[in-house]
C-alpha cells in the first residue's frame, strides 16, 4: 500500500435523485497510468471534480500521498500535489502561452503576493515555465497569444501548465479530446514517458490511447466501478463487454 499515491474510498455524490457516483474506491499507484473509462453519464466528470476539489462529496474520502485531502479546497489540493488538466481547455486566452505556463509556475512557487517586479523577469518562474513548454513542444510559440493556438496546441499547453506544478499525481480529463490521429499519437507518446515522473489518473474516451497507455483500467457504469484490472483482464471481461463495450464487441 505504501506505493499508493492517490486513492479514493467510497466516494459518492448525488444530484437530487441522481446518484452520479456510488462508493467509488480507486487507487493510483506510483509509476502507473490508471485509466477510468465508461459510457457518457457514467460519472467520470463528477469523479474528477470530487478528486480535484471542485465538488464536495456526500461521503467518502480522497487521500493524496497518505494525507486526507477530502475537506480541502481545490487550491489546497493543488498545493498538496494534484496536477489536474481540463477536458475543455481552461486557459487564459488573452494571455500569451508563456504567461499561462508562468501562472502554473507561480502557483507552484506559492508566492503570488509580489507586486513590483515583472513576473516575466523572475528567473525561477521563467525557467520552470519555459522548461514545461519545451517538453510539450510549445517553446516556439511561447510569445503568441493563447487564443491563436490550434486546438491541439491548446491541449498541449493544458498539459504543460500541469507540468509546471511538478505534481505528485496527475488527474487528466480527456487529454485526447478533439485531437486528430497524429495529435493523439504525439500526446500518447508524451504521457507514456510521463508516468515515471508522477502517476496519471486518466479519464479518456479514446480507446486506442487507453489500451496503449494504461497499466490498469477501472470501468465506471452508472456511477459504480464494475471492474478494475489490467488491459488484458478488462478486454476479456464479460461484464465489461456487456455493460460498456456493447455485446458482440
Amino acid at each position: 500500500m505504501s506505493d499508493v499515491i492517490l486513492s479514493t474510498r467510497n466516494l459518492s455524490r448525488s444530484f437530487g435523485a441522481l446518484k452520479a457516483t456510488r462508493n467509488i474506491s480507486i487507487d493510483l499507484r506510483a509509476g502507473e497510468i490508471h485509466a477510468v473509462i465508461g459510457p457518457n453519464g457514467a460519472g467520470k466528470s463528477t469523479l474528477i471534480e470530487q478528486i480535484s476539489g471542485g465538488l464536495r462529496s456526500d461521503s467518502g474520502t480522497v487521500h493524496l500521498v497518505g494525507r486526507d485531502v477530502s475537506a480541502l479546497s481545490t487550491q489546497a489540493r493543488a498545493r498538496a500535489g494534484l496536477g489536474r488538466t481540463f477536458q475543455i481547455s481552461a486557459l487564459a486566452m488573452e494571455d500569451t502561452v508563456l504567461e499561462n505556463a508562468l501562472l502554473g509556475a507561480l502557483g507552484q512557487s506559492g508566492r503570488p503576493w509580489r507586486f513590483w517586479r515583472a513576473a516575466g523577469e523572475d528567473r525561477d518562474l521563467r525557467a520552470r515555465a519555459t522548461a514545461a513548454l519545451e517538453r510539450v513542444g510549445l517553446a516556439g510559440v511561447a510569445d503568441q497569444v493563447t487564443a491563436s493556438l490550434s486546438h491541439g496546441q491548446r491541449r498541449q499547453l493544458e498539459v504543460a501548465v500541469a507540468l509546471t506544478l511538478s505534481p505528485r499525481a496527475f488527474v487528466m480529463d480527456e487529454p485526447m479530446a478533439g485531437l486528430g490521429a497524429e495529435g493523439s499519437r504525439v500526446m500518447t507518446d508524451f504521457l507514456d514517458g510521463l508516468r515515471g515522473e508522477a502517476p496519471i489518473l486518466l479519464v479518456e474516451h479514446d480507446m486506442d490511447a487507453v489500451f496503449a497507455l494504461a497499466d490498469r483500467i477501472s470501468v465506471l457504469v452508472y456511477g459504480q466501478v464494475i471492474a478494475t484490472g489490467t488491459v488484458a483482464e478488462i478486454r476479456v471481461s464479460r461484464e465489461v463487454k456487456e455493460a460498456y463495450l456493447g455485446e458482440g464487441a
Partner: peptide, 9 residues
Amino acid sequence: RRVETVGLN
C-alpha cells in the same frame, strides 16, 4: 478555475 487548479486563491 484555472487559477484554483494551480493552487492560487
